[in-house]
Structure formats: structure tokens, C-alpha cells
Design a protein around this nucleic acid. Structure first.
Length: 869
RNA sequence: GGGCGAUUAACUCAGUUGGUUCAGAGUGCCUCCUUUACACGGAGGAAGUCGGGGGUUCGAGUCCCUCAUUGCCCA
């Protein structure tokens, strides 16, 4: 049977994934082992996999697979989020294409369409995760609108209401005119845009005077109820008690004085539109101004505007400018850069708007949530996000939780007799409550609030509700799996989700929801832009997997992904991952191709095995250390170098029998053992390839996915350092071969003047890798030989060919200069009394050693130069 | 405008509590090599004033100040 030259992922990935599923390795039930739990950040139910998910889920899978190998009862809970706005927008869009308007449907009819859509498009993303190799416990798959999940959400809402933390009121909210719903502050994205600053002249009532204001939203003058200037602004003091007239509508409004106004900005005079600006709203409140709401929910002007009624606000902005100009009220227009809020989901320009909404007072929750992060009960990786988190927690505002949508959990508030309402888990309870107030209320009188809850109001319970910990707080699952271990997500949802889960954790479980939060970077494209659905600049991960293999893509993603750093994605990284797969494959192919016999074990092989055992142990140690610090790319790089450099380039090259010769059985058995350990280290990163080779090595029942994580053995530091020395000698020989154009096939002789004896005799390795006919020590300098130095030992390769004496001398002089410089630096240091007195003894002693070594080396080089010339 | 970071090789990043001539890794680049696991490979090599300036110290990539550039969060 011949093994193909390159690794082909297509032959292995589906096969092993099906096998793992069949064996139930991903499934977890509570047992006597310690649990290791991750809950997935639930992707949008109708979403498709993008690079951010790839990164995120690869990291989670790496953590889960390693935990499983380390003997934990590993449980990764998958699921999806109903994503109210995003999904509803998609459904509305789809219906519109079919000529159906949302308003033509009843709530139930619409929800039927929405569930159809969810059935059709939902879960695609989970199937895609399987291609990546994600070892989720699929039997636990949850959806934030599953009945039990929704029940938990409602229960929590009612509970918070009873605790007096939920209230209803008219407030200035962020209004998304496209989705026609309120949004939380977190859902508003501020972007800098080029806009225009309009300078508009208002007449002062009863005079010929005017006052000019500057605004970026001229259409809102229709809702003006005052003009405000700074009381310290001498330009306007004479306008006290005067009134201004709004152009076009000729409404008379007061001129008020408040220090809020920035005298430097624009003309120093500010128009006040309480209905459409949060700051104006507050001023309006303070001075009892009229609130004139000139916008409809869809962003067109309302009857209140009295002009341009029914036209979109942006159309009006253009038209009003023209009309103002005609009337001579437009003084000038300037180019202006300002920040404008956009809807996170629909990208529509947010309008501040007064509306009746439900709010959640979170202040009392923020205290424990902040404290336990700041004292590292919950650790953030990297810790720099603690600051951002603190800032948000310390300035926490009430959370607007109602959305004017249908897709989501309907708010369990029931109205009767107009504005009276009760909040209860179901209509029956609501009736009971209402009847306490008024016994004559009937079921038919109760009308449930039509709003739904913010999506995040369900996902903030996720780590609890997936284990049914809200409805059944003492069930076996939640006791076993909660708190979870690691949460891996992007920093963009630190407030949306992470912070709120922490709050929910302490409120509803009395403890943290997870011990560690690993915040990934954002995946960016080559131009540094954030990869997003809207931009369409994300490569299709499934295509990448087809091209490079899932393992290749996983490695590619992780190679450049230190926690918290943005990742400029480059397909070349996947290529590197693919090449790595192939390298491992070929190492296996080499070993598998050997003929094994009972011949004597070569000395070099014996030494190489000892060395590699030490090297492997040391590296496992380092890898474990990297994992514990959540430096996953570092752990991967450690594994990468162990395989490529140590195992392939050195170990295998040493033990490799000569062409056509067999390998001794001892070395073969040892080599297989080492390879198996390496495969285990690789498994979390490259699950498919490692499982495939694991089974090609031997026809066996056990799978690597559940094999034991390799233990750290004894590390012989001396041997490791001797081997480093040997590497340098080999490199010296190779350099000479290359410089002199000597074929590798041609055997060479090596002579050594050992000024410094090494402990382990690794000559056999030098002979093998240098292709030497002999190696021996000498005490005489050899003239007319190529030579090099390692530490203070001198190596000579006698050759018939001509030596370029001048070149040799030049090389030696260069080295001499360097060493002399080195000596000088040590001497200066040691000559400095303050250094000798102040530096720790160890440092001074070190410095003395360095000085002596340098002196010895200089002497040798000088003699060499003398001999040559 | 406020807050928090970042700035080290062409690129992406390491660099622990200041202490080896400590400036490092991977990729890329250059030269040579179809050699008997792998050209998705091997051997060798070049490459950085550690953003600028100042300070503390016997000693600064590492600590402090300042300026510049840049990213993120919040208003």
C-alpha cells in the first residue's frame, strides 16, 4: 500500500466527524469527573458562518478538546439566538418581495412566517460548525426562543418587576426608523460622517434684529421650542426676555439662557428641539418647554411639523435648505464632520425620539458584577479589557428592554382599563392580580403589551438557562455544569452580553457565570476593514475549508491570533496551515515506510531518542504553560516548532536509516511513541489529521480524541544544551559544504581541538548529519583546512581544494572585532565601581565569566590569524 | 471632548519582576539544491536607531514625563 505524497483532508474529515458523533464523544452527562464547560456565544439563528465565528469557535474547540483529553467531563453547549431585529428585518424583507406588508398580517400570521423562515434557514450555521470540527454536545442544542428558554426569560422579567427594577415610562430613546423600534444605547454605533452645518437666521420678535444659529439638522427647526445662549455671552445679553420667530412656520419661541451652551461652537446660539435631541430634551425639561414631535415612526415628518408632512427627514433636509435660502433665512452652509448614530442592525440613522418604553434599572446589579471582575474572580484575557468593562459598569444607565417588534418574547404585561397594567408570567396570573385591584376585570379585558424584549434580555441568561437553572434552580445539571469555565467571544459584545451575563449570574445564581473570559480580536480584511456581512468582505469559511482542509484553516486562524488583537486575515495563513498538515503527513509517511529489523541500534539513534524525550517534555511544559495563560497562538507555535524543527529536521534526520537499509526495532518503537505524543499535542488544533494518522499507525479501537494528554517527563537540561552545541557543529559543517560547493554525498573528515569538553558525547550524531568519514580530536592546528568555531572549540575540515586565505582572514577578523567589542563592554561594566557595588552578585559573576570566555576566544582567533598569514 | 490601549525586521507578533552582545519567532525576501518523507520541501543568508525627544538608574525595548501617529470604548 502506498501512501499519497500529500495529505488529503477530504478523505478524512467527514469520516472522523461521523465516527466521533456515533461514539458520542461530544455528549456529556454529569458524572464523578470534574466538569469543563463552555457555552457557545449563540450565533444568529439565520446567520451564516463568517471568519469571526471561525476564529471564535476554533478557539472554543481547542479548549474543549484539550480539556477532554485532560480527563475533564467536557461539555460545549451549542445553540442559536433568535436575534429579534435582524431576523425580523429579514422576514419583513422576504415578505415584501412577495408583496406582503407586515402591517397586513396579524401578529400570529407574521410569527408563522418567521418560524417558517427559521426552519428553513436556521441551523445552517451549526452545520457549518461541524465542518470546522466543532465538538459541541449537539444533543444540548438550544435556541433562545425554545419554550423553556422563553419561559425563563418571562420568569426573570416578572421577578425583576416585582423587585421594582423594571419600570415603564416615556423617555428619549434611540429610534430606528427602518426597523421602527427603540434600541438600547449599546445598539447604536457612532460613526464620523461628512455633513453640513447650516447657519439659520431667526427674527427677534418686535425688532429688526435677527439671531443666527447653527445646526446639522435644519428640518428639526419645525420642532423648535426655544433658542438658548450662554448667559456669559456678551453678544446676546441684550436679548434677555426677547422672543424669536421660527422661520417658515413663524412660531414664536423664547430665548433662554443656560451655561450648557458652548460659546465657541457655531454662533454660540443653539436651537432647542426637545423632542429630537437628548440634550435639548433635558433643557426642555428644565425650562418647561413645549415638546413638538415632528417625526413619524418611519422617519417621515408628521402633522406636527405642519410643513413637508409625509416626506422623509433627509428629503426635507434638502428642501428646507432651499426654502430657507429663498426666504433669506439661510446665512451660509459649511462642510462639517460629526458623529452620527447608526443602528447596529439596520444601519439606519438613529433618531432620538420620545417614546413609551420598558426600562430596567441595573445600578444595583453593577456593583457585584464590577467587583468580581476587578478582583479577578472572573479573569479577563487579555486583562486590558477590565478597564473598558469598569468604565461601562461605573456609568451604567437604565436598559431599554422593549422593542416594537413581534419576533421575540412578548412582554408579559397585561393592560386593562386603559393604562392600568399588571405583570405576570401568564394571563391567568395576570387576571388574579388585576382582580385584586378591580374584581370586575375579566379575561377579555386584559390586553398583553404588544412589544417584545430585547434579544439580549434572553441571551444574558444563556449560561443559566441552557441548564434550566432559572426554572429549576437546584437541578442536577446546573449544579454540575455551572459556573462554566471559559467564555470565548469578541470584545464587540462585551457590554451587550458579557457584562450582563455577569450581572445575571450573581443575581440568579449568586455566583459568577464563568471563570475566564477570552476576548478575541476582530477579524479584518487586508485593507484593515472589519469583516462583516454588510460589507461582504468575509471569505467564505466553507470554501477555505475545502481548499486547505479544516485543520489547515484552524491552524491558519490561530497562528496570528493573540488574545485581544485584531487579526488581519490573510489566506496565506491557511496555506501555512495546510503546509503544516502536509509536513506532519510526510513525517508519518517516512516512518511508515521503514522496514524494521533486529539489527543493532546505532549510537546516534540512542542519543537522539534521549534528547528528544527531554525536548518533548520541556516543550509540553511550555505548551501547558501557554494554555494556562490563554496564549493559544503561542501554544500552537510551540507545537509547530516541536514538530517541524525538533522532530522532523533533527530527530528524524538522525534516526533515519540509510537508503535501502532497515531500522532497528528499538528505535522504531521509540519513534512511534514520540509520534503518538506529538499527535496528541496536535489534536486540539488539528483534530482530523491527528485522528487519521493515529489510526494509520496502528489498527486500534481507542481514538485520539479521548486519549490522555501527554505527561511531562524528566528534562535533562545538560543534554539539551549539549545538543544545541551539536546543532551548531552540524551547521558549521553544512555552511562549509555550501560555501565550498561540496555535495552532501561526499564524505568529509572532521578534526577538533577541544578547548572545552562537552559532557555528552554526541559525535555519532555529528558523523551522521555531517556525513563524516571520521571525527577525531587533535591538539595541533591544521593549516590549509577549512575551519569554524563553536564556543571555544575549533573544528577543521581538511580539503584538497584551495582555501582563500584572504577570505578566511577577513572572516576571522570580523569575529575578532565582535569578540573584542564584547570584551570591552564587559570590562567597562566591571570597571565601573558603581556597577560592581550595586548590581546583584550573580550579575557581576556572570559578567566576569563572560569576560574570561571572551579573552580565551580572542587568544585563539589571534593565533589562527597568525597561522594563516 | 473624556477614558483605555498600541507603536519592536517587509508583514503578523513575542519580549515576565529593569541585568548576558538581548534585540527574538513565524511568514515573506535573497542564494543554492529536484537529494533517497515532504518543492505544500531542504540548506544557508540578509534584514530593526525597539515611533521622536527628555529624564530616573551603575545599567532602559522594559520605569517616569512629553510630543507624534494610530486603534478601541464612551459622550
Amino acid at each position: 500500500m502506498s501512501i499519497p505524497k500529500t495529505y488529503n483532508p477530504r478523505n478524512t474529515e467527514d469520516k472522523w466527524y461521523a465516527h466521533w458523533i456515533e461514539k458520542g464523544y461530544f455528549n456529556s452527562t454529569p458524572d464523578e469527573r470534574e466538569a469543563y464547560t463552555i457555552v457557545i456565544p449563540p450565533p444568529n439563528v439565520t446567520g451564516v458562518l463568517h471568519m469571526g465565528h471561525m476564529l471564535n469557535n476554533t478557539l472554543q474547540d481547542v479548549m474543549v478538546r484539550r480539556a477532554r483529553m485532560m480527563g475533564f467531563n467536557a461539555c460545549w453547549v451549542p445553540g442559536t439566538d433568535h436575534a429579534s431585529i435582524a431576523t425580523e428585518a429579514k422576514v419583513v424583507q422576504k415578505l415584501a418581495k412577495e408583496g406582503i406588508q407586515k402591517n397586513d398580517l396579524t401578529r400570529n400570521e407574521f410569527l408563522e412566517h418567521a418560524f417558517d423562515w427559521k426552519e428553513k434557514h436556521g441551523g445552517i450555521i451549526l452545520e457549518q460548525l461541524k465542518k470546522l470540527g466543532a465538538s459541541c454536545d449537539w444533543k444540548r442544542t438550544k435556541f433562545t426562543m425554545d419554550d423553556e428558554m422563553s419561559e425563563s426569560v418571562i420568569k426573570v422579567f416578572v421577578d425583576l418587576h416585582q423587585k421594582g427594577l423594571i419600570y415603564r415610562g416615556v423617555r428619549m430613546v434611540n429610534w430606528d426608523p427602518s426597523a421602527q423600534t427603540a434600541l438600547s444605547d449599546e445598539e447604536v454605533i457612532h460613526k464620523e460622517v461628512n455633513s453640513k452645518l447650516y447657519y439659520i437666521k431667526y427674527k427677534i420678535e418686535g425688532t429688526n434684529e435677527t439671531i443666527t444659529i447653527a445646526t446639522t439638522r435644519p428640518e428639526t427647526i419645525l420642532g423648535d421650542s426655544a433658542i438658548c445662549v450662554n448667559p456669559n455671552d456678551e453678544r446676546y445679553t441684550h436679548l434677555k426676555d426677547k422672543k424669536a420667530i421660527v422661520p417658515l412656520v413663524d412660531r414664536v419661541i423664547p430665548i433662554i439662557f443656560d451655561e450648557y451652551v458652548d460659546m465657541e461652537f457655531g454662533t454660540g446660539a443653539l436651537k432647542i428641539t426637545p423632542a429630537h435631541d437628548i440634550n435639548d430634551y433635558q433643557l426642555g425639561d428644565k425650562y418647561g418647554l413645549k415638546t413638538i414631535d415632528i417625526l413619524n415612526d418611519d422617519g417621515t415628518l408628521s402633522e406636527n411639523a405642519s410643513l413637508y408632512v409625509g416626506k422623509d427627514r433627509f428629503v426635507v433636509r434638502e428642501e428646507i435648505a432651499v426654502d430657507l435660502k429663498t426666504k433669506g433665512c439661510l446665512v451660509k452652509m459649511e462642510e462639517y464632520k460629526n458623529k452620527i448614530g447608526f443602528s447596529e442592525r439596520t444601519d439606519a440613522v438613529i433618531e432620538p425620539k420620545l417614546s413609551m418604553q420598558w426600562f430596567f434599572k441595573m445600578e444595583s446589579f453593577s456593583k457585584p458584577a464590577l467587583e468580581h471582575v476587578m478582583n479577578d474572580d472572573i479573569q479577563f484575557h487579555p486583562p486590558k479589557f477590565k478597564n473598558t468593562y469598569r468604565h461601562w459598569m461605573e456609568n451604567i444607565k437604565d436598559w431599554c428592554v422593549s422593542r416594537q417588534l413581534w419576533w421575540g418574547q412578548q412582554i408579559p404585561a397585561y393592560f386593562y382599563e386603559g393604562n392600568k397594567y399588571v405583570v405576570a408570567e401568564n394571563k391567568q396570573d395576570a387576571l388574579t392580580l388585576a382582580q385584586k385591584e378591580n374584581p370586575s376585570v375579566t379575561m377579555d379585558d386584559l390586553k398583553q403589551d404588544s412589544d417584545v424584549l430585547d434579544t439580549w434580555f434572553s441571551s444574558w441568561l444563556w449560561p443559566i438557562s441552557v441548564f434550566d437553572g432559572i426554572r429549576n434552580p437546584n437541578n442536577a445539571e446546573i449544579s454540575y455544569y455551572y459556573p462554566t469555565n471559559d467564555l470565548i467571544t469578541g470584545p464587540d459584545i462585551l457590554f451587550f452580553w458579557v457584562a450582563r451575563m455577569v450581572m445575571a449570574g450573581y443575581e440568579y445564581r449568586g455566583e459568577l457565570p464563568f471563570k475566564n473570559v477570552y476576548l478575541t480580536g476582530l477579524v479584518r480584511d487586508e485593507q484593515g476593514r472589519k469583516m462583516s456581512k454588510t460589507l461582504g468582505n468575509s471569505p467564505d469559511p466553507i470554501k477555505l475549508i475545502k481548499k486547505y482542509g479544516a485543520d489547515g484553516v484552524r491552524v491558519g486562524m490561530l497562528l496570528c491570533a493573540p488574545a485581544g488583537n485584531d487579526i488581519p486575515f490573510d489566506e496565506g495563513l491557511c496555506e501555512q496551515g495546510r503546509n503544516f498538515s502536509n509536513k506532519i503527513w510526510n513525517a508519518f509517511r517516512l516512518i511508515k515506510g521503514w522496514e524494521v529489523s533486529n539489527c543493532k541500534q546505532p549510537e546516534g539513534s540512542k542519543k537522539a531518542i534521549n534528547w528528544f524525550e527531554s525536548k518533548l517534555s520541556k516543550t509540553i511544559n511550555e505548551i501547558d504553560e501557554s494554555y494556562s495563560k490563554y496564549r493559544i497562538s503561542e501554544a500552537l507555535m510551540g507545537t509547530y516548532k516541536l514538530v517541524w524543527d525538533d522532530f522532523c529536521s533533527w530527530y528524524l534526520e538522525i534516526v533515519k536509516p540509510n537508503y535501502g537499509s532497515p531500522i532497528d526495532s528499538t528505535t522504531y518503537a521509540e519513534t512511534i511513541k514520540q509520534l503518538e505524543k506529538i499527535l496528541k499535542l496536535l489534536h486540539p488544533f488539528m483534530p482530523f489529521l491527528s485522528e487519521e494518522i493515529w489510526h494509520l499507525i496502528d489498527n486500534r479501537k481507542e481514538d485520539i480524541i479521548v486519549a490522555d494528554w501527554p505527561l511531562v517527563g524528566i528534562v535533562n537540561e545538560q543534554l539539551l544544551s549539549d545538543f544545541e552545541n551539536t546543532k551548531e557543529v552540524v551547521a558549521g559543517i553544512r555552511t562549509i559544504r555550501k560555501q565550498q560547493n561540496i555535495a552532501n554525498k561526499e564524505q568529509l573528515e572532521l578534526l577538533i581541538i577541544e578547548n572545552q569538553k562537552s559532557n555528552a558525547n554526541l559525535d555519532a550524531i555529528v558523523v551522521k548529519l555531517g556525513n563524516l568519514s571520521s571525527i577525531r580530536t587533535t591538539i595541533e592546528k591544521l593549516n590549509g583546512a577549512f575551519n569554524f568555531m563553536v564556543k571555544s572549540n575549533e573544528y577543521f575540515i581538511p580539503l584538497a581544494g584551495n582555501i582563500d586565505v584572504a577570505l578566511e582572514i577577513e572572516k576571522l577578523k570580523k569575529e575578532l572585532d565582535y569578540t573584542k567589542g564584547f570584551l570591552k563592554s564587559t570590562e567597562t561594566k566591571l570597571g565601573n565601581e558603581r556597577f560592581v557595588n550595586n548590581a546583584p552578585q550573580q550579575v557581576v559573576a556572570n559578567e566576569k565569566n563572560k569576560m574570561n570566555d571572551a579573552k580565551a576566544k580572542i587568544e585563539i582567533i589571534e593565533i589562527k590569524i597568525k597561522n594563516l598569514s
